[in-house]
Amino acid sequence: MGESADDWSRFEAEYRDSYQAVSRYLRRRLPPDLVDDAVSEVFTIALERWSTRQGAALPWLYGIARRVAANARRSLGRADRLAGRLRDEEDPLGGEPGADTEVLDRMGAARVLERLPERDREVLMLVSWDGLDPQEAAQALGCGKATFAVRLHRARRRLERELAREITAVADQGSMTERTAT
């Protein structure tokens, strides 16, 4: 057993090209203190499976990272520790109600995503912050393109419902504030 020098060179090149992307992928899904070790785990697994990889490298690495992140969360004993961390943030409500993006900017998009099921968050992040096109995202998830399209559509609608709910809550808060002031 043992890969050739060419294999190692290719792996090292991919490592250098992808390390930051994988690190950022995991930073969106794990507490900060777990990220470095999780990245190490991803590339350890990638080296082991290097000869059997299929498709583009980054989606393949994201597929490994997704499961490493899931394992890390399970080992913490919570489904999503990021949710607990975000709940400690200050209440962002107040001020004038804004458009979807303003709500996201004000609240922190991660906090809105935290209200969605984990599988919806994954789909949404893959095509946005993680920078994959839908075909690559389907590869990262290990599903077909049609399946991914359905998941993306549902996730997008749930995201917008959460945003609408938040905008309504902000509007109600603003009305109450006005009535109190007058």
Binding site: R24, L159, L163
Partner: peptide, 9 residues
């Protein structure tokens, strides 16, 4: 909706 500006990373 999910832009670089609100990326938690």
């Amino acid at each position: 909706l999910l832009t670089a500006a609100n990326d938690p990373a």
